[in-house]
């Protein structure tokens, strides 16, 4: 059974602590949002889990395997700016992870085509990234992460650079795709509404050095609907988190 276990991770940049002794657990099929003010260290935590940034101390276990400081293996990452390779077509971008893993060309392109269709970009296989809108680029970015069939999906403010309408559409798309292929998700955001709408559980982080102020289990049933954003319980939770963060910043 898939399981992510982060134990006692600490990190300091140039002597300034960013993370102090942080731990968290993610269960199979669980969607966890890391919510906090900009620059608090939640993105750093994500990058440590991804292996891009080494931790000063602590361990990361994925499905019982120690993956501390290693990249690849079971994790798919969606970056804030999509960060597609401009010299690869949409299809070749999606197939990138499989190519790195050594999957044959026919096989990986077939897989890539599947995921490109899944994110609604059938017909754009041969488009260059610069020919796609920001929203379409991020769909390719999501397809690229899904294509390697990771057990853990890491998303670093993936919709942060998009306009509100596009973000709403992509949130729905993400939920739809994820519900078809449930895997563990760690979703970094500073949008309270986004976290409530997408996640099963929210870890609210303090300002730097980041620690979890509160863990909130989101009580809404799936599949989630747009209308739930008007639910009084949703609004209450939203206000509560907002107060929590504001209080922390002025503390």
């Amino acid at each position: 059974m898939a399981h992510l276990s982060v134990k006692n991770v600490s990190k300091a940049f140039g002597g300034a602590p960013v993370l102090v002794d942080q731990s968290l657990e993610v269960e199979e099929g669980e969607f966890v949002a890391l919510l906090g003010p900009s620059g608090c260290g939640k993105s750093t935590l994500l990058q440590i889990i991804n292996g891009l940034v080494p931790a000063d101390s602590g361990t990361i276990l994925l499905d019982g395997k120690d993956i501390t400081g290693k990249t690849g293996t079971g994790r798919g990452m969606v970056f804030q700016g999509a960060d597609l390779f401009p010299w690869r077509t949409a299809l070749e971008n999606v197939a990138f992870g499989l190519e790195v893993m050594g999957v044959g060309k026919a096989e990986r392109l077939e897989q890539a085509r599947h995921y490109l269709h899944l994110v609604g970009l059938g017909g754009f296989e041969h488009a260059w990234p610069h020919q796609l809108s920001g929203g379409m680029q991020q769909r390719v970015g999501i397809a690229r992460a899904f294509c390697i069939r990771p057990s853990l999906l890491l998303m670093d403010e993936p919709f942060g650079a998009l306009d509100v309408q596009t973000r709403d559409i992509l949130q729905d798309e993400l939920v739809r795709i994820w519900e078809a292929e449930r895997k563990m998700v760690l979703f970094v955001t500073h949008g309270i509404e986004e976290a409530l709408y997408l996640a099963d559980r929210i870890l609210v982080f303090s300002k730097r050095p980041a620690h979890v102020l509160r863990e909130i289990v989101v009580p809404f049933a799936r599949p989630r609907q747009e209308s739930m954003k008007l639910d009084p319980a949703f609004l209450d939770l939203r206000r509560e988190i907002s107060d929590l963060l504001r209080h922390d910043i002025h503390a």
């Binding site: 292996g51 990249t71 690849g72 293996t73 994790r75 990138f96 992870g97 790195v100 390697i148």
Partner: peptide, 12 residues
């Protein structure tokens, strides 16, 4: 560097 990091994150 970001594109290099994308490749790293995919275990390249």
């Amino acid at each position: 560097l970001r594109l290099v990091n994308v490749a790293r994150s995919f275990g390249a």
